[in-house]
Every structure is written in structure tokens, then in C-alpha cells.
């Protein structure tokens, strides 16, 4: 464990909590892409299957349970509790355009052709594109509420810190995980555009619609 990865995990947790609290406190999920949240819940589900087969550390186990619980809680709030505020008109990104290539790629490019490895690879590739429905929704509605932008900022920060973590681990342990790195860099690039808007436009974002 290094400071970059710890800060990255904390930033990831903060992002998830920001979104969950926003929905819970405002009792509304307007402007939030339920599709992205379902994809994130799917990412955690397919990645953390080893929760019951491999014990790495208390931290690892606790964080996996927390991420799973919070992501399912978010999906529950969007599609059940506050479903009447769900903006299905604008949350229309075709997730099959993400799932099909990701499934295909995870069968082609993986470390071992075993169910657990393929599901893990699927979750890595899926995570890199899971934010697309949310970014699409923001461009469609032409705006993002300030709290949603904080959510995206901390999500992007988590990815950037993971890249720093990989550089650090390569230098100190000679460790690198090619699939995770390639996918993580692609994911971070998607946030760069948003980061630019976030920094130049301040909190409220108006995308050129």
C-alpha cells in the first residue's frame, strides 16, 4: 500500500459518498445517470467476487464491502426510492454499446481464461467507460449541478492517483498490471475534458450544447 493508492481509494469513497448524500438529502436524483450507477455496481460485483475466496487484508475486505454496499444503495435510491425524480428522458446512453465491446475484449485480452479472471478483466474494462452515460447526460442537459461536478472531480482524482500509484509501484516493486494500467489511462483521459471544464468554468458547468 502506498500513499497514492490510499488517497485514491479515499477519493473514490468520497466521490461515492458525495453522490449518495446528494441524492439522499435532496430526495432527488435529477441530473444523475442511473445507467452509470448500475454500471458501477456491475463493476464492483464482477470485480469483488474474490471477496469470499481470497483474503488480502482487512482494509481490502472492508473497502470492497463498503463500495458494494454504497453502489447498490445508490442504485436503489435512483430506481426505487426516488424513481419519480429519475430523469429517464435524458439518461439514454446506449449501454449495450459499452457492454458488448467490453465483454468481447475481456474474452480476448485477459491473464487467464478462467471465469474469475475474465470477470475481473470485464470489470476493469467496464470501469473505464462506466462514466460515459453520466457525461453524455451532462452534455444532453447542457449542465451539471455543482455537487455532481464534485462527484466527477473526486472520481477523476481517484483515477489520476491510481496512475501515480502504478508509477510508484513500478519504481519500488517492479510491479505493473498491464490491463489495469491501459484501461485506467483510458478512463482518466475521459475525465480530462471534464477537468478542463471544472477548472475553467468553476462549479456550475454549462457544456456547449
Amino acid at each position: 500500500m502506498n500513499i497514492f493508492r490510499l488517497a485514491g481509494d479515499v477519493s473514490h469513497l468520497v466521490a461515492i459518498l458525495i453522490l449518495l448524500m446528494k441524492i439522499w438529502r435532496s430526495k432527488s436524483c435529477a441530473g444523475i445517470s442511473g445507467r452509470s450507477q448500475v454500471l458501477f455496481a456491475l463493476v464492483f460485483t464482477t470485480r469483488y467476487l474474490d471477496l469470499f475466496t481470497v483474503y488480502i487484508s482487512a482494509y481490502n475486505t472492508v473497502m470492497k464491502v463498503v463500495f458494494l454496499a454504497l453502489s447498490y444503495a445508490t442504485v436503489y435510491l435512483i430506481y426505487m426510492r426516488f424513481r419519480n425524480s429519475y430523469d429517464s428522458e435524458n439518461d439514454t446512453f446506449r449501454v449495450e454499446f459499452l457492454l458488448i465491446p467490453v465483454i468481447g475484449l475481456s474474452f480476448l485480452e485477459n491473464y487467464a481464461f478462467t471465469p474469475l479472471e475474465i470477470l475481473w478483466t470485464f470489470s476493469i474494462f467496464l470501469e473505464s467507460v462506466a462514466i460515459m452515460p453520466q457525461l453524455f447526460m451532462i452534455t444532453k442537459t447542457g449542465e451539471a449541478e455543482s455537487i455532481t461536478t464534485h462527484y466527477l472531480f473526486f472520481l477523476g482524482l481517484y483515477r489520476a492517483l491510481y496512475i501515480a500509484n502504478w508509477v510508484w509501484r513500478y519504481h519500488t516493486e517492479g510491479f505493473y498490471d498491464q490491463i489495469a494500467i491501459v484501461s485506467g489511462v483510458v478512463q482518466t483521459i475521459f475525465y480530462c475534458d471534464f477537468f478542463y471544464l471544472y477548472v475553467t468554468r468553476g462549479e456550475e458547468i454549462r457544456t456547449p450544447s
Partner: peptide, 10 residues
């Protein structure tokens, strides 16, 4: 397929 890496990252 190189060996499956240790999955210690979240």
C-alpha cells in the same frame, strides 16, 4: 496469457 497478477488493488 502471462500469469494472473496478484489482485491486491480495489
Amino acid at each position: 496469457d502471462d500469469e494472473s497478477k496478484p489482485k491486491d488493488e480495489l
